[in-house]
Nucleic acid binder design. Sequence first.
DNA 1: GTTGAGCGTT
Length: 402
Amino acid sequence: MADNSPRDEPKTEDDAKSPLDEVKDIRKEAELTQTGSAVKQVADPEFITVQDPTGEEPIELPTDDGSVLMTTLQASFPGATGLKYKNPKTGANRAVQVDPSGLRLLAPADGWEDKTFNVIIASQSERVRALSSADATSAKRRKVGSSDDSDSDDGRDGRSGRKRAVERDSQPVDLIVLGVDFKTGDECFQKYFEEIGTVVFCEIKRKSDGSSKGFGFVRMASVGEQNKVLAIPQHMIDGRRCDVKVPDGRDKQGRPSISRIFVVFGDEAKVYVETAVVTDVFIPKPFRGFAFVTLSSAEAAESIVSYSKGSLTVNGLSVGLSIAQPREENQPFGPDYGLPAGYRNRRDRERPERRINQNESHSPLPMPFVRQDFGGYRQQPQQQNSPLDRRYWPTGDSNRQW
DNA sequence: GTTGAGCGTT
C-alpha cells in the first residue's frame, strides 16, 4: 500500500503567483505525480488535443504510459466521464475506451494522433446530483482547480504560536468518499487514490456481513496531496462518480474538521470563476464561526459552492460554504443570520427548513451569498475603499449582537 | 440478491 513517493511539499514559489497560476501548477503536479509509485517520469509526454466545450481554445492533455488518466481529464473538465472523436470514415462519434477500473482512457487502435477529442460529460440530470445545492441551473462547466494549496511547510520563522497553529492545522485528515460503488473493492479503491498521491490510510466502510456501505475514507500523506484530491471535482472510482470531501464532525484528534469560519476569497475567487470579484465580506461580531462573502454574480457564487462541494481548505483550515439563504421576514426564533449556509447535513435536520420565497420572478438560483436588499441586513452608510472594510449591519436594533 | 444520501465498531 503506502509506497514512498517523494515529498512534494517544498514549494518555493508563492507570493508572486496568481491564484490561477497556482492552480495550474497544482494540476500540472497532479498530472505528473499520478503514478503513485516512484513517479514514473514522463520525460516528454505525448499530448492529446481536446476541444474545450466552452468554446475556448483546445486543451492538450498529457498521456501517461500511452493512456490518459481520468483524473487528468477531469482536472480540466469537471464532470467529464470520457472522450469521443469523429470517425472520418463514418462521420460518427467514437468513444474512447475506458479501462475496466475506470482510471484510464485507452488509446484508440490507431493512436491518439491526428484527432481532436471532445469531452463526454455526464448528463444534466446526473450532473445535478453532483451539485451541492438546489441549483440546477448552471450547466456550464468551468475549469476549476483547488482552492487551496495554502499549506506551506516552510520552516522559517521559529517557534511562534502562530507557526504551531499552522502546523497543527496542516495535517491531512481522513477524507470521506461518498458514492462508492457497492461492488468496489478495497484494492481498487486504494489504487484510485494512489494515482493521485501517497495514501497512508484508506478504507471502505462495510457492514458486518462484509458488504459495502457505499462510502469510505482516505488519508493522503500530505496536505498537498490531499488538496490534489479535493481539487478534483468529480472522482470516478471503479466507474462510479464519487464525492470526496473533508468530513463534518470530528477528526481523529477530536478537533472539528470543519470550522465554519468564513472564506476570504479575494482574488482566489478567480480560481473558480475568472470573472468573480468579491464585493463584500461580512463577519458577524462577536465571531460566530461563520461569515458571508458576497460575489459579483450569482453564477460566481454558485460555481464556487458547486465546485468546492461545500468544503474548502483555506490556509490549511477546512471551511464549509454554501449559498446563503436570505432571512425570512418573520423569523419566529429571532435572527438566524441566514445561517444554514454551511450548515448542511445533520444540522439541517435540527432546523426548520428555510426556503427562498417562492417568488418566481427571482432567479432560479437562490441568491448570491448576501444581498444588501434582503430583509435582515442593511448596509452601513459610509462607503469605504476596500470591500473588506464594508460591513453589513442588522436593521433595527443596533444593539443586536453581531 | 435490491439501494445511493450520508459521516467512521480504527
